[in-house]
C-alpha cells in the first residue's frame, strides 16, 4: 500500500540520515514529492511511502520517536458541528448528498459520501466547514 505524509524536521534532525535509515530498516520505498530542507534551519518533506501496512505503521512510529512531526496527507472535510444552526444552506451545493436535511429538518453529514469538493466551505454562512489536507498521526 501507499500513503502520503508530510514530515517536519527540526534543525538538528536535518543533520541525521533519517530517510535512508527508514528505507533500510523498514523495507519501504520512499518517493520524495516535495522537499524544502536546509542544513541548519530544518524543513518539510512530502513523501509517499510504499510497503506493507505493518511497515508503514512502524515507519511512522520510528519517525515520531526520533522527533519528526508526521502528518498523513489526507484530503478531508472538517465540520464544526456544534456551531450548526441547521439552516441547510450547505445542502444547496452538495451534489453527492453527503450533507442533507433529515425529516426533522436537522442537518446530517454522511462522511462516506463526501468527495471533499469544498463547495460547502463557501456555502455555509457560519463558516463551519474546512478542507484539511493533513491529518496528524
Amino acid at each position: 500500500m501507499k500513503r502520503r505524509y508530510a514530515l517536519r524536521f527540526s534543525p538538528t534532525l536535518v543533520e541525521q540520515p533519517i530517510v535512508s535509515k527508514l528505507a533500510r530498516t523498514y523495507d519501504v520505498d520512499i518517493n520524495i514529492l516535495n522537499a524544502d530542507v536546509a542544513s541548519g534551519r530544518g524543513g518539510k518533506l512530502i513523501v509517499e511511502l510504499s510497503g506493507t501496512e505493518e511497515n508503514l505503521d512502524a515507519s511512522v512510529l520510528y519517525l515520531s520517536e526520533v522527533g519528526v512531526i508526521v502528518s498523513e496527507m489526507v484530503k478531508e472535510l472538517l465540520f464544526r458541528e456544534e456551531g450548526c444552526i441547521h439552516c441547510g444552506a450547505c445542502t444547496a451545493v452538495c451534489s453527492p448528498r453527503a450533507l442533507r436535511m433529515n425529516n426533522e429538518a436537522k442537518l446530517v453529514f454522511d462522511v462516506s459520501l463526501c468527495v471533499v469538493c469544498g463547495l460547502c466551505t463557501q456555502a455555509c454562512p457560519l463558516r463551519l466547514f474546512e478542507v484539511s489536507n493533513e491529518r496528524e498521526t
Binding site: I85, C87, G88, C90, A92, M101, A105
Partner: peptide, 9 residues
C-alpha cells in the same frame, strides 16, 4: 432544493 432559514430552530 435547499432551505436557508432554520426550520429546526
Amino acid at each position: 432544493t435547499a432551505p436557508l432559514s432554520s426550520l429546526a430552530k
